[in-house]
């Protein structure tokens, strides 16, 4: 019994694998179709209301029956949408099987909601076991499953949004496909992928923050990060201190005025170039501290230091440099 089921899952999965490359090819050809008028090469616009595609320049109607690709049903609340929609969630890179495989429910109930008999229950348990084994067939898939779980866990702990998780997952997949994993830990590569994607999305997290939620130490994280960036040619720009400002300011409960002032301090600093070689986190922390003082808001160095994970000494040093720059620009 279990044999027939397992073969079916296998072939279904294999078929969906075959389809995928073809799908992506079709996507490309669709993008290649240029939207120009066949008569005068003018710009084409789609008139949604009348279902027509017309040329903006000569008025030629290129297509008069546009296919509405949206759902044919209407829903007025989310419960109705759930009951009427016939499709599942979109595929995502954040799951090792892209969310395409089927799970056997855990409730032990049949389609009518009745509890299963003990015999059927046992059978379902065996089927679940086999289903799980076939969902993750080789070591690479098991590896991916664990890593993507890690990425999701860390991203949640750091409050990183969906797009960052998705990018991190893609970076990890690339690393796995390029055989960068042997010799490095799954956790290390997953953490560096997340760090890199947070930087790419413009919402950087400091290494200290990542280290707290990760299972690897900073040394391994930085080493793996540099390796991944070099091998995958990710070309990540140095983090901009300004990107840390809003987070620190809101955690300290500062006003918009102080936040604006902090950004201004950093911009002045960047113009004079005193930021080169300095940690962006430290600069951001000092700018936030300096801005709070300039706008008469009460924060202590130790508060800033806890929020930003930067020592008070660093804050004092950077703060002095930032104010010197500001005095310079005011005098000039």
């Amino acid at each position: 019994m279990s044999d027939t089921i397992t073969t079916r899952t296998y072939s279904a999965d294999a078929k969906s694998r075959d389809v995928r490359p073809r799908e992506s090819e079709r996507d490309e050809t669709q993008q290649d179709e240029t939207q120009v008028c066949p008569e005068c090469s003018g710009h084409l616009v789609t008139d949604e209301e009348h279902g027509e595609t017309i040329c903006e320049d000569c008025g030629l109607v290129v297509e008069d029956t546009v296919v509405d690709r949206g759902p044919e049903w209407r829903a007025f609340d989310s419960a109705e949408r759930d009951s009427k929609s016939r499709v599942g969630a979109p595929t995502t890179k954040m799951m090792h099987d892209k969310g395409l495989s089927t799970n056997i429910g855990w409730q032990n109930k049949d389609a009518y909601g009745k509890s299963l008999s003990p015999r059927q229950r046992e059978q379902m348990q065996r089927l679940r076991t086999w289903n799980e084994r076939f969902r993750t067939r080789d070591s690479k898939e098991r590896n991916l499953k664990q890593a993507l779980g890690e990425i999701d866990r860390m991203a949640s702990a750091l409050g990183l949004p969906e797009n960052v998780r998705e990018t991190a997952s893609v970076i990890y997949r690339r690393a796995l496909n390029d055989d960068l994993l042997p010799g490095r830990s799954i956790e290390g590569v997953a953490t560096s992928a997340l760090y890199a994607s947070a930087r790419m999305a413009g919402t950087p997290r400091s290494l200290d923050e990542l280290e707290k939620v990760s299972r690897v130490d900073k040394m391994e994280l930085t080493r793996t990060y540099r390796y991944i960036v070099r091998e995958l040619k990710l070309e990540i720009k140095p983090a901009d201190p300004e990107q840390y400002v809003p987070r620190f300011a809101s955690e300290l409960g500062l006003s918009d005025e102080a936040e604006r002032q902090a950004r201004q301090l950093l911009r002045d600093a960047k113009e004079t170039g005193i930021h080169s070689g300095k940690s962006p986190v430290g600069l951001a922390a000092a700018a936030v501290y300096a801005a709070a003082l300039l706008t008469n808001e009460k924060v202590t160095q130790s508060e800033v230091s806890t929020v930003a994970d930067i020592s008070e000494v660093t804050i004092r040093n950077r703060y002095k440099e930032l104010l010197e720059v500001q005095d310079g620009t005011l005098l000039a």
Partner: peptide, 27 residues
Amino acid sequence: ENLNLNAIAIGLGLENIEYEPEQFPGL
């Protein structure tokens, strides 16, 4: 003379250099 490492990092091309001020102050 002082160098603006951020500008140099981008000017020389991010694929040729390594500049992580959070990890090491040098480029």
